Amino acid sequence: MTDSDTGSFPDDLRQLQERLHRVQAEYRSHLASLPWSVEPVKGWGRGERYSHRGDVPDSPGWSEEEKETAARLQQELRELAGAVAGHPHWATVPAEKRVAARMDLKKRTRPAPAADEPGTEAA
């Protein structure tokens, strides 16, 4: 897909998509740092309660601050996704090319992986 196929993307749309990528990464990182259960739950051992991965430790649950952060990030994701999807630029792209153009925008604005992320090589 080239610029001539999709047209160039307006700066504000590119900035919205870049911000959406950043908030998605922040949200994933936040969730990865939290206990496995939102509410406190007693763990269980292998063979109990359908565990396929072995023992499951107790979960202390999420703190109110952790819940608020997750809710704030979810709300920001919804707002950004709506702003990107509802941007007036998409009305200028022929219907049959919108999906490809949307994927092109996502690809162009996705941040480069950090050197310490899986799938990247150290220089």
Rank of each mutant, 00 (worst) to 15 (best):
P60T: 06
G119M: 00
T109N: 06
H87I: 01
A71E: 14
L73K: 02
G61Y: 02
P10W: 13
H89F: 15
P35Q: 11
Q75E: 15
A123Q: 09
L77W: 07
R22I: 06
G47I: 08
K107H: 09
S51V: 06
Y50H: 12
S29G: 14
A100R: 11
R53T: 15
S63Y: 11
P10G: 13
T92I: 06
A100W: 03
H89R: 08
F9Y: 13
W36D: 15
S63P: 10
E64G: 09
L16W: 11
G86P: 00
A114I: 00
T92D: 13
R28I: 11
A100S: 10
R14E: 13
A70I: 01
A85K: 12
D116E: 02
T69F: 00
G61W: 03
V56I: 15
D3H: 06
R110V: 02
E66P: 04
W90D: 05
L20E: 12
P10C: 11
R53D: 13
R28M: 12
M103T: 08
H21T: 13
D12F: 08
A114K: 07
V99H: 12
T120C: 00
A25S: 13
E121Y: 05
A114P: 00
P94N: 14
L77Q: 07
R49A: 11
P10L: 09
A114N: 02
M1Q: 10
D12N: 15
H52M: 14
E48N: 04
L13V: 03
D104V: 08
S4N: 05
A101Q: 08
Q17D: 14
S59G: 09
A71T: 09
E79Q: 14
E121R: 03
Q75D: 14
S59A: 14
